[in-house]
Amino acid sequence: MDNLTYYIQQLLTGVTVGGQYALIAIGYTMVYGILRLINFAHGDIFMAAGFFMVYASATLPLYISLPLTLLLTVILGVAVERIAYKPLRQAPRMSIMISAIGVSYLLQNFATYYTGGLPRPYPKLPFIGDIIQIGSVTTSWVTIITPLLTLALVAGLVALIKYTKMGMAMRAVSRDFETAQLMGIKINNVISMTFVIGSFLAAVASVLFFSKYTTVTPTIGAMPGLKAFVAAVFGGIGSVPGAVVGAFVIGICENIIKAMGYTTFSDAFTFVLLILVLIFKPTGLFGEKTTEKV
């Protein structure tokens, strides 16, 4: 294997991992932008999407099970918001965050209970798991598709936020929650929409992720969730392009560190980055520069 192939192979892996983090990170950053809530249950919604697919595809053909998985994940995301966050909307922010942690544990433990704690094989999807040879690089289609699909979905999302009425409402709510409400924006619809988008992207991420790493376990969402959260903070929490850039930076850097043989420090790198960002530039790369209103 010559040097160029080696670097391309390593970079490709990093970009794919980054793409997966990006899709999850958007869910964090959007919910934070609207509700000022760090939705700790987001990683577990990603995990739940994996199990939905496992169970749905056991009995149903792919063209039903795949849309069903996306739909169920969206329903789960919105249901979590309605049940665990909405009643706490007037409560201090800390309460709602604790509620999010509670939901996270609930989902994990329920999954452990329901599956018996054993890893489940993810169904093999046609095409995207197939192996391709580009020049001297061998890889699977999902490695190529992940970053491309991520960028396409993000472009669509940015357009939605910029050019649609719902997008305008979202921007207004994230700027000033109460005033937006006074101006007649239906807050609950906007919030639900945020969770619909976030959960949908998490479901897409789970399909891509598990097509590559084909076992689903109840705690699998924890680590990607945490990394995606760091990516969101790094990019400036609340900013969609920021989350995507942050995710790619973390994915690629982690992979370079692993390739150099310093696996011991790959996770440490991610979390040291979080600390440094919080100390020196708490608003992140693309964060809003406005100071908190008193």
Partner: peptide, 20 residues
């Protein structure tokens, strides 16, 4: 030798080194 972290699911970096 190479090592990975508990909970890691992506071994492509290590495996590329194996190939190399």
């Amino acid at each position: 030798e190479a090592q990975f972290q508990t909970g890691d699911v992506d071994f492509n970096a290590i495996l590329t080194n194996v190939l190399n």
